[in-house]
Simulated scan of single mutants.
Amino acid sequence: MCMKKYSEEELKNLEDKTDYEKVDNLTEEEIEEGSKSDPDSITPSDEDLKKFKKVDKE
């Protein structure tokens, strides 16, 4: 995988290529499947989720 660094100015000028309609229409199942099939994604297991602790907002 190739990584490229961008300056703050370059980031501001990048074109947004996100298909927001497609994103908005994804089901929870499709999102979860996409996460599980992405080798760069760290999807917590049900066992991991049980260990999460609620944090109060300040």
Results as ranks from 00 to 15, higher is better:
30 E>K: 12
38 D>W: 10
27 T>W: 00
28 E>F: 13
42 I>Y: 13
37 S>F: 04
27 T>G: 01
28 E>S: 13
44 P>I: 05
42 I>T: 10
46 D>Y: 03
54 K>Y: 09
47 E>G: 06
33 E>D: 12
56 D>Y: 11
49 L>S: 06
31 I>M: 12
29 E>Q: 09
56 D>Q: 09
51 K>P: 00
32 E>A: 13
33 E>K: 15
48 D>I: 01
47 E>R: 06
30 E>G: 09
51 K>E: 08
44 P>D: 05
42 I>R: 13
45 S>Q: 01
32 E>L: 15
40 D>I: 08
53 K>V: 15
33 E>C: 09
29 E>R: 05
46 D>C: 02
43 T>S: 04
56 D>K: 15
28 E>T: 12
38 D>Q: 06
49 L>P: 01
56 D>H: 09
50 K>D: 10
53 K>W: 05
28 E>P: 08
32 E>C: 10
49 L>F: 10
50 K>M: 03
49 L>H: 05
27 T>A: 00
32 E>I: 15
30 E>V: 08
33 E>R: 15
46 D>K: 06
27 T>N: 00
30 E>H: 10
37 S>R: 09
45 S>T: 15
51 K>D: 02
40 D>Y: 14
39 P>D: 03
52 F>Y: 14
50 K>Y: 06
27 T>H: 00
37 S>Y: 06
33 E>A: 15
34 G>R: 03
28 E>H: 12
40 D>R: 14
49 L>R: 15
49 L>G: 02
46 D>L: 04
40 D>L: 12
27 T>I: 02
44 P>E: 08
39 P>C: 00
52 F>C: 05
46 D>T: 07
29 E>M: 04
27 T>K: 00
30 E>L: 08
37 S>L: 08
40 D>S: 13
35 S>N: 12
45 S>R: 03
34 G>D: 02
38 D>G: 06
55 V>Y: 06
54 K>H: 10
30 E>A: 12
37 S>W: 03
32 E>R: 15
52 F>S: 06
51 K>A: 05
47 E>K: 08
36 K>R: 15
41 S>Q: 12
49 L>V: 13
30 E>M: 10
33 E>P: 07
31 I>E: 09
35 S>W: 08
39 P>R: 02
50 K>H: 10
36 K>E: 03
55 V>P: 00
32 E>W: 13
50 K>C: 04
31 I>N: 06
36 K>I: 08
55 V>S: 03
37 S>M: 09
48 D>V: 00
47 E>T: 09
53 K>R: 12
36 K>W: 05
45 S>W: 00
37 S>P: 01
47 E>N: 07
51 K>V: 02
31 I>W: 12
30 E>F: 11
48 D>S: 02
29 E>I: 04
47 E>M: 07
45 S>M: 02
31 I>V: 15
54 K>T: 10
39 P>L: 01
30 E>P: 04
